[in-house]
Amino acid sequence: MSETTPTNKPQWAMVIDLDRCTGCEACVVACNVENNVATVGAEEAAKGRTINWIRIERYFEGEYPDVRVKFRPVMCQHCEEAPCEPVCPVYATYHTDEGLNAQVYNRCVGTRYCANNCPYTVRSFNFFDHVWDAPLQKAWNPEVSVRSRGVMEKCTFCVQRIKAGEAKAKDENRDVKDGDVTPACVQTCPTKAMYFGNIADPTSEVAKLSKSSRATKLLEDLGTKPKVIYLNEGE
């Protein structure tokens, strides 16, 4: 897995405040539009072939009429010790020096080992070539590839926006700062439950929030070291 080498590159991370999440799924819609994520239709969805880069998990607590619902948006956790990476026979998934878990579609041969090894089940496989009914293909994001049949895909933390933000910072001859990079889900969240930034920069908002006493990570005991930090609900 990753040998942690000291780097001055930004380390991208996300913080999600569960107290603010209302489960509206606006982030899911934004993600689908931004990243050309295909919808498969009811029949294929019933076979478990949906493609989701982000999903909202629902948890119900208590008995009717005293029921409380909790929501949790789950996307690729960009683990520092990602279980998906060492099982790929063709190095199609690997860790970048910016702390991203990358998926290279050109390399992927579709063994699906990575999805089997992902404890968060956030990887989706393209079981067939998707059809966008005209004129929907005109809404494709030109900055993102349209994945073909037989490759695995998952959340990239909107790498196209990361690259654009880094290019902008380079133009202005400075380091990236908060606000340079905003993934589609973070941008669209109506309750501002999501934060994104460079966790290696101690002044960034995600670095500060990650030190909160409410901060937890999903399935932390697996030792995957996720880069998505959840702020638990307060009582």
Binding site: T96, D97, A102, R107, V144, T156, Q160, K163
Partner: peptide
Amino acid sequence: VSIDCYVCHR
């Protein structure tokens, strides 16, 4: 220059 895949492919 970086030869990271994400420089060109995404």
